[in-house]
Design a protein around this nucleic acid. Sequence first.
DNA 1: TGTCCTACACCCCAAACAGGTTACATTAAA
DNA 2: TTTAATGTAACCTGTTTGGGGTGTAGGACA
Lengths: 226, 226
Amino acid sequence: MPNSTFTHNQHNALTMPITVIIYEDNTFLRDSLSSLIINAEGFELCGAYENCNEVEAQVSVLKPDVALMDIEMAGVNGIEGLKIIRKNFPEVNVLMLTVFEDNDRVFEAICAGATGYLLKKTPPIKILDAIRDVVDGGAPMTSSIARKVLQLFPRQPARSEEIDKLTHREQQVLQLLVNGYSYKMIAAELKVTLETVRTYIKRMYEKLRVHSVTEAINKAFPDRKI
Amino acid sequence: MPNSTFTHNQHNALTMPITVIIYEDNTFLRDSLSSLIINAEGFELCGAYENCNEVEAQVSVLKPDVALMDIEMAGVNGIEGLKIIRKNFPEVNVLMLTVFEDNDRVFEAICAGATGYLLKKTPPIKILDAIRDVVDGGAPMTSSIARKVLQLFPRQPARSEEIDKLTHREQQVLQLLVNGYSYKMIAAELKVTLETVRTYIKRMYEKLRVHSVTEAINKAFPDRKI
DNA sequence: TGTCCTACACCCCAAACAGGTTACATTAAA
DNA sequence: TTTAATGTAACCTGTTTGGGGTGTAGGACA
């Protein structure tokens, strides 16, 4: 049994049902999900809507524990809805419903802070399990979506190999420069004289073929946008 | 024959067993895992070792489909072993074995390209399921590890809100500073005088409460490691 | 054995950067 | 409508950084 990571309230079927809100544009599926929740022990449906146009007001009033969120919807779609919920109600868990395990959508949803991913073809009993799981601090998703998530994860921070040609000392000072240290502070940190720090930096600049701290940082961390 | 790089071959118990290599320093657990694999239909153990000191040679010769990799080991540990395998044998799936669902380790392993995560307390039958799963293109992990992975995922470009308080012009110069531009170059780029650039930067420093370019960059992109 | 590499240290000089202040026109907010 | 914020520009005064040297000592290499 997964332990709750933070203070996710331990819902108990006898005392406190898990409240669920549904966003799904397909009427048939929305009705199916609704009756699934309504008829399940320990769950309570607090709303079911065809898009996220009014998500902020609805979640604000209904205060669900979990939102089942279709990704593709006319009007305000699931990704937008997810962002709105994350921004205004960070305590609400959002379970995305997807038909396809499509990279871009999954990536967007991950970046927007989705709690889990269900395929629409998931059998009803598994959906209830998944909802219980998110409330208990889990992040249910299919194994293949998990694989995609891992693949999307930024690998070893893409930095140029030129960094590897620096000596240990030179890498040290570069890291400290990156951290915003002045020459003086670096000297103090490394317990060497200012002149020595300057020697390291001069040699480093030569290797990296740069002429300033910021250019050097740029070599280490290219393509950063504000 | 055995492992093709990207197309996950569908292993069939009758024709082609899944070959497994084990790295685990606890003798008892290593033996348990070994006999689990040996006695399972459709699996073949090709080696079991107490650390990754010789991982490159072993994997090169034994060509396993899947590596079960303990994270904590004396000698070359599991994270290092994982990196070596990823670098030299990208087609080998690496399943990490962890005792604790510790953030740093999970994060490191993710960045190094682990294929899945198993808790050591996982029942044997589930371990076999997980191995089949990775071979079929999945990424088995517990629901709570999945949650951690999602939480570790870089949210909308993690930058401090202080950046938002900068004016458009100030953000422009900050971006150019980040790109390694000197004051002069910024002045040329923005077609204003050097003194104006200095004014922008001075005001920006005040807002960010910093005293140098590198500190400002650090505010914009915190926690960067070489 | 001598040579290369690294870590360490110092010098000078010029360029770049930082801090303080002032000024003025425009625009947005109170 | 006064105030506050922004974009523009300039002055003076320091400090920090960058580029050019020189030199010593300890290991690694070969």
